[in-house]
Simulated scan of single mutants.
Amino acid sequence: MADVPHPLAAFIVGEIRRARGAAGMTQEAFGRGAGFSASHVSAVEGETRALTMDFIKGADRALSNGGLFERMVAKLGMPSWFLPWLDAERAAAQLRVFQPSLVPGLLQTESYGRAVIRCDDTLSDDEVDRRLAHRLDRQGVLTQANAPQFIAVIAEAVLRRAGADFRDIMAGQIKHLTTLAERPNISVHVLPDEVSMHVGLTGPFSLARLPDHKWVGQMENQLGGVVVDSDTDVDTLVSRWETVRNEALSRRQSIELIEEVGTSWT
Rank of each mutant, 00 (worst) to 15 (best):
E194W: 00
Q94R: 07
P211T: 12
S230M: 12
E156P: 06
H40S: 13
F98T: 05
A74Q: 04
I186Q: 05
H6K: 09
F150Y: 11
I174D: 13
V41P: 02
V227H: 07
V97R: 01
T263H: 15
Q144G: 11
F11M: 14
G77L: 07
D60G: 13
H40G: 12
A133G: 05
T26W: 11
S230F: 10
V128E: 11
D60I: 00
I117Y: 06
L191P: 01
A91M: 09
A91D: 15
A181R: 02
G172I: 04
M72G: 00
M78S: 14
F11Q: 14
L210F: 10
F30T: 05
E70Y: 10
V228L: 13
A10W: 06
W265E: 15
P184E: 15
A162C: 04
T109Y: 05
T179L: 15
F69L: 05
A88S: 05
M197A: 14
G224V: 05
K57Q: 12
A152G: 07
I186K: 01
F55Q: 01
D54W: 08
D212M: 03
G24C: 11
F82I: 03
V216F: 06
V261D: 11
M1K: 00
R167T: 15
L68A: 12
G217Q: 00
Y112F: 04
D235F: 04
F69R: 03
V44F: 12
K75N: 15
R17T: 13
D3G: 12
S187Y: 07
I56W: 07
R160I: 12
D137W: 08
T263L: 15
T179A: 15
R131K: 13
L191N: 00
S187T: 08
A50Q: 13
L95F: 04
G262S: 07
L142M: 00
D126P: 00
S64Q: 09
A157N: 07
A133N: 09
R118P: 03
F55V: 03
G14A: 11
S64I: 00
A164I: 12
E247G: 06
I258R: 03
A23G: 06
E260H: 09
H176I: 08
L223K: 08
F36P: 00
T178A: 14
V238M: 07
G66S: 01
T109W: 02
A43H: 08
L102Q: 09
G67P: 02
Y112K: 01
E127P: 02
L132S: 03
I16G: 06
N146W: 09
G24I: 09
E28S: 14
A92G: 01
Q222C: 15
V13I: 14
V216E: 01
E259H: 03
V226R: 10
L191V: 04
A157T: 09
Q108Y: 05
V73F: 10
D212R: 00
S230H: 11
I154D: 10
D165N: 10
A59L: 01
G14P: 02
D193P: 06
L123P: 02
R245Y: 11
A157H: 08
L223W: 09
L76Q: 12
V244P: 05
T48W: 14
A248D: 01
L63E: 03
E15M: 12
A34H: 00
D229G: 11
K57I: 14
L201C: 09
